[in-house]
């Protein structure tokens, strides 16, 4: 499969960077073609602009800054997101990638005369999240897992009808031991081996 890996962490020496490397290496080892997008390294600007807001229903082709990101998304069979969970959800740089790139004409379309949007990213058959939570699973359950819901529900309905959503998460990362982190890397490798 062609796998688009989208990675968001500001610090190259982080545990999340190690998870990215493990994910990419595992996918390649199993014969997948990986297209890695490092949002921080690209200097991606997550704030939807006034102009984009005013023209949010225009085709993406009229927004040159977004075209390459849209093309990479359209060319993938699977999407793997690797990020730390902050405030229950994606870091702003990744949330902004949803806001700006997953727009009309890329992720969905609103056909003339209809009041329901139709999905356009039917090329995506797998949607995988690899993430770490500083806080415990219990705290995240109370918070209602906003980040999980955005990907598993809001984004998933815009993919292939039978697209599979996989959630690979380490809870309590702030207080985790070296051993727990190693075990989590192994879990990421095991699960991505069976993409």
């Amino acid at each position: 499969m062609r796998v688009h890996v989208v990675y968001a962490h500001p610090h190259e020496g982080s545990f999340t960077a190690a998870l990215r490397d493990a994910a990419v290496a595992t996918l390649r080892r199993h014969g997948h073609e990986v297209d890695l997008l490092d949002l921080y390294a690209e200097g991606f600007s997550p704030e939807l602009t006034r102009d984009e807001r005013a023209h949010h229903l225009d085709p993406v082709e009229t927004k040159p800054a977004l075209v390459p990101f849209a093309e990479r998304l359209r060319n993938a069979d699977a999407l793997v997101l690797v990020y730390p969970t902050w405030w229950g959800g994606q870091p702003a740089i990744l949330k902004g990638w949803f806001d700006r790139v997953w727009g009309e004409g890329v992720a969905f379309t609103l056909p003339e005369g209809k009041d329901r949007i139709e999905p356009l990213l039917t090329n995506l058959r797998r949607l995988v999240v690899v993430t770490t939570h500083g806080s415990s699973k219990w705290v995240n359950a109370v918070e209602g897992e906003p980040g999980k819901r955005i990907v598993g529900r809001s984004l998933r309905v815009l993919c292939h009808r039978r697209a599979r959503f996989r959630w690979i998460a380490l809870y309590g990362a702030d207080r985790s031991t070296e051993e727990q982190r190693r075990a989590f890397v192994a879990r990421v490798e095991r699960r991505l081996a069976r993409l």
Partner: peptide
């Protein structure tokens, strides 16, 4: 996208 605009997040 069901959530906060990136600038607020």
């Amino acid at each position: 996208w069901a959530g906060l605009p990136a600038i607020l997040k």
